[in-house]
Design a protein around this nucleic acid. Structure first.
Lengths: 257, 257
DNA sequence: ATATACTGTTTATATAGTAAACTGTTTATG
DNA sequence: CATAAACAGTTTACTATATAAACAGTATAT
């Protein structure tokens, strides 16, 4: 199966080659009853409901009415299944280009959409990011991130650094928002454990002498995010994003003059 | 074992409680031949050499000359061992406060040190970050990150947002630098697979019509980082950091006027 | 017609993590 | 001092898990 890889795949990881559709479909033998897309879709829906730990080859196959081993006719290893899942949820709709809007709006839109992926698929942030994106949906998102900078007087390295800046911030914000979503869900059933309710424990542990700068932040509740109504920053993630955008604007100015 | 937790631990996860030293040492019975610190240290050294997949309860115990089950007298689960490892490598030396230096230098120093953790312990970035730090070493690092802002005219939410900004950027940069380190190591043995050498494959796959903005970046080699000497950005991570610092400066200015 | 390349399944193996029961040791208590 | 309780580390056992190998049936190329 993995030996039928198109030469264009070059040295790509198998998961990436599969995602690019570079593995030739078989010519003989019985009709396939499954497909990569179906398997990945099923795995994602399990992960959405039960987390990554719910995703086993057996579980995915059972859901489809097959045996675990049948999946290996499509995907060579679980690691590759996870890569395919990762790329699949990057297949978000990319809005049409708005040539009149300013670049700040476009970047905000990109970051917001990226964060949403983490909230829609809470397991997404549990997969390790191994280096640069190589798979098609993920790369379309990178293409999107580059779009607002098309006419910037910057070279490609500068642009990529900005993409890194935006995407890393989106990731971190996405993770935190995901955890907040979880806490709210847990709060709906108060018998369950509320993951963000560590405030009391921390207040007893963070002594002023050992943590002079963290101490007041814990005490005010800003660290764990209680009294969210007092949060002048507003929708948590927007503050940092505006700082990043300011920083970019600042750099553009310095380049123009 | 886990039932002997100090009440100050409150609702903390067990791993965090262990890390805070909130689990009372036993009063009777035979002398302990191991310690949490020793186990964690051993696990870290295995992970440093062989990656996270090398760390199994069996492997760690064998290294110490004990059976896997003996570890459970100290650490209730593997998940907790991983948490302890995560916190342990955050135990980096925190430089003394430099009251005369400016805040930008202090923040640069913090980010640089954080990135170094990812390079020294390549597995560190493979562990999922689950929400806010709760463990002592990690929180000392947060305290450090807050230090340069002590006299900023900002409230705690604003400060925490900036910490998020800096630490998320450090994480992403750290991951990329780790991967570059790996590629260089692989390059030293050219028979091995160089993880960053996907350039050729991508050049064939990223068509201009589907990826109008990414296409030129791939072709120039900026995406995969070939011709690093042409990278005007300089030491890759510094560019984004300066943008962030500019953004913060910009915000401070807008507050002052 | 038949060899070939497939399909999904069955069977088997190796490697986890960890629960429970066991043996021996130290300490607190009567 | 005797004994019970609390512990240490081990043995054994169980449950998942990923996945290799062999198998029986089916569609296609020659």
């Amino acid at each position: 199966m993995t030996d039928k890889i198109n030469e264009r795949a070059g040295s790509l990881p198998v998961g990436a080659a599969l995602s690019w559709g570079l593995v030739e479909p078989p010519k003989r033998g019985p009709k396939r009853e499954l497909s990569i897309a179906l398997i990945v879709e099923t795995a994602i829906s399990i992960a959405d409901k039960e987390g990554l730990s719910g995703v086993s080859m057996n579980r995915v196959a059972s859901e489809l009415g097959f045996t675990a081993m049948s999946l290996y006719r499509y995907i060579p290893s679980k690691r590759d299944l996870l890569l395919l899942m990762q790329d699949a949820v990057c297949g978000i709709p990319i809005p049409p280009e708005n040539k009149t809007g300013d670049w700040r709006d476009s970047m905000r839109e990109y970051v917001r959409a990226t964060i949403q992926v983490f909230r829609d698929h809470p397991w997404f942030g549990d997969l390790p990011v191994s280096g640069l994106p190589l798979m098609p949906n993920n790369l379309r998102v990178v293409d999107w991130a580059l779009r607002p900078m098309r006419d910037f007087p910057l070279n490609d390295y500068e642009k990529m650094s900005i993409v890194l800046l935006l995407s890393s911030y989106a990731r971190s914000s996405g993770l935190i928002q995901r955890d907040m979503d979880r806490a709210i869900q847990a709060g709906a059933r108060p018998d369950e454990f509320n993951g963000l309710d560590y405030t009391e424990a921390l207040k007893g542990l963070i002594r002023e002498d050992k943590f002079p700068d963290l101490h007041p932040v814990i005490m005010s509740g800003a660290y764990t995010g209680e009294n969210e109504e007092e949060n002048t920053v507003g929708n948590d993630f927007e503050f940092g994003l505006e700082r990043i955008l300011d920083g970019i604007a600042c750099y553009l100015d310095s380049r123009k003059k």
